[in-house]
Design a binder for these strands. Structure first.
Lengths: 368, 368
DNA sequence: CTGTTAGCGCGTTCAG
DNA sequence: CTGAACGCGCTAACAG
């Protein structure tokens, strides 16, 4: 029912091959026939069948973007930047360019390893041109090997892979042939950022600092916690492992986890003078809980977040946090997955993080 | 290079058709052969070629989701909900169901009509199973007719269309045949919500209320402004058109527009006792500007937003706003676009909005 | 219940 | 520069 290449060819009085050639512009075609073909295309409102094209040419217009949840600003910002880079101008008023642009298939994994594998299969089905995996990896279980296997297969079949905000996968470093070059990583310096953040609190004079961590099995959680503890250790405040664990509560990367964790920390250690949260969203929950307990921020207790999400500057009080250039990272991931930018040395680029000191942290009270 | 149906068939000692049948489960196949086929599939790590399948069966696994920008929580929340509904369990740990799930192609239009049309063409290329258009429509130019035309074609070719947070398109109401049933709308009661919000301010005693509107050509902007003015009119405060316009400033739906607009309003009318913003993000900008001018919220001036985005409850002070159940709306749009829910009467459902009174609004100062 | 035969719509040889 | 023929990988009739 839909108009096909053949219909256009018939109307233009040429063969289907010729129509294909003018449409793809990769072959010499006489100006007059090109005119005729284009007019026929226009008359018939012809739109190529992407599936047929993909099948015949063994190419795909799709790029997968795996995120925990696009509704989370952290992932939304990355996904948006990736989409902007791969669209190749479809989002520009100037019109549709040759066809260099690709479509972003956004997949919410909810942080579930199984969902991640499911989506990778689905993307393999679609013979995706590339896949961007965002957010921390789930460590410890056999999951990482399973993912590595799937990614290796995708890479082998020509799909470009970019890990964004996730550590490199060692198993993928030595793939045969060109496949090794098609796996790239844009990592975040979570460890360094976390360390500088805690150093900032220590410099203010804090000595009893609670830590609200994310899920234990996430690489992001681990790196941030390591940075935090490295700062403590350098200040000679490491304490025993039991002591460290007493001031650490794990939860999810959401507001209510922060709320609950803050109350738990206060229960464990009423003398707390500062709380570092896994990220800004968690920090908001922490702030809410502390305020409800009658504590003023930062006069009675300091709070810090991570990521520097857009809302953090408007929180009450403005959140001290660690900025990750998420848009830049996402854009870079987008360019890499499109092959529009040379891969960084070793396939690994690490984006810097920046300490943002705002109003939610201050020196502890004299009495504390 | 990739393993194909034929390879599986060969290994299992059956014909390609049989393999296809067990994979799709739509045809009776003997238990023993099914076993053999499934083992061959497993041995060879076979993954169907979605393009070939789509071409042969004239179906598609893709659903387009057009948003202004996924990084904006308003759109992120909707997109997330849509994707959750259409995934059909791919995001569940239980594994991949038959193949009922579809992939979400997220397109950032940046609010540009041309980009919207470009993406609709791209989605037509992919023979998308459905398209969800979110956010307000751009009115006034020839754009709406152009979009209507494209949507009509998509609908005619079997693509289901859902407008989410956008008014129904009249031109699409009387399409021939089943096409009319495949265009549905999930509208937001922007007008009613805006009216109740302003009524709330009037009840508090405010009489000089500034309004920071979105871009003039957006349907969302228009509806919210209409609601606001309807409330003023009912209270006998309509004033002359010139007077209304003096207290209205248009900008984008972002923070910096709110910031600038607040300063402009203050310049035009220093006696302002309240400001209503186009949405929560804009409201944050308004708050920031007012605070910098030394005004306390709500003691010196009240501020209200719209949408009730997640961060609004944690803003300083917590924002009075109008809640739109974005997740619910997105989920509903997802179900409709999948055909998993019966279309509402007349193809139009309007989701209610709810006034959320929080700390950013209060009675004006006695002296004001 | 299973194999055989045709296409789905397009890109790409290979001749002309 | 253009047309004819073939095949991409799979599903859907049609027989058996």
């Amino acid at each position: 029912m839909a108009v096909t290449l053949a219909d256009v060819a018939a109307r233009a009085g040429v063969s289907a091959a010729t129509v294909s050639r003018v449409l793809n512009g990769n072959y010499p075609v006489a100006g007059s026939t090109r005119e005729r073909v284009l007019r026929a295309v226009d008359d018939l409102d012809y739109v190529v069948n992407g599936h047929a094209r993909a099948l015949a040419a063994a190419t795909s217009d799709l790029v997968g973007v795996l995120v925990n949840d696009v509704a989370d600003p952290f992932f939304g910002l990355i996904a948006s930047a990736v989409q902007g880079e791969i669209s190749g101008g479809a989002d520009q008023p100037s019109g549709l360019p040759a066809g260099a642009g690709k479509l972003a298939v956004v997949c919410n994994t909810g942080g579930s390893p199984e969902a991640e594998l499911n989506y990778l299969t689905l993307l393999e089905r679609q013979r995706a041109a590339g896949v961007v995996l965002t957010g921390g990896a789930v460590e410890g279980t056999g999951h990482s090997t399973a993912v590595a296997g799937r990614l290796a297969r995708l890479a082998a079949s020509g799909t470009r892979i970019v890990l964004c905000g996730r550590p490199p996968v060692p198993e993928l470093a030595d793939l045969p042939g060109a496949a090794a070059d098609s796996v790239m990583t844009v990592a975040f310096d979570n460890r360094g950022g976390a360390q500088r953040l805690t150093e900032h609190l220590l410099a203010l004079g804090h000595r009893t600092i609670g830590y609200v961590a994310g899920p234990a099995e996430r690489s992001t959680t681990r790196h941030r916690l390591e940075g935090h503890r490295a700062a403590l250790a350098e200040a000679g405040l490491a304490g025993s492992p039991a002591e460290l664990d007493r001031l650490t509560v794990h939860g999810y990367y959401d507001r209510s986890s922060g709320y609950d964790a803050a109350l738990e920390l206060l229960r464990r250690e009423p003398g707390l003078t500062a709380v570092v949260a896994a990220n800004d969203t968690v920090a908001l929950g922490v702030c809410a809980a502390l305020r409800e307990r009658g504590l003023r921020i930062p006069e009675d207790i300091s709070v810090a977040g991570f990521d520097d999400l857009p809302f953090s500057v408007d929180a009450a009080p403005a959140l001290t946090t660690v900025r990750i250039p998420l848009q830049e990272a996402g854009a870079r991931a987008g360019r890499l997955v499109m092959g529009r930018q040379a891969p960084p040395p070793g396939g690994l680029a690490t984006v810097r993080t920046e300490l943002m000191v705002r109003a939610s942290t201050a020196a502890p009270r004299k009495g504390a």
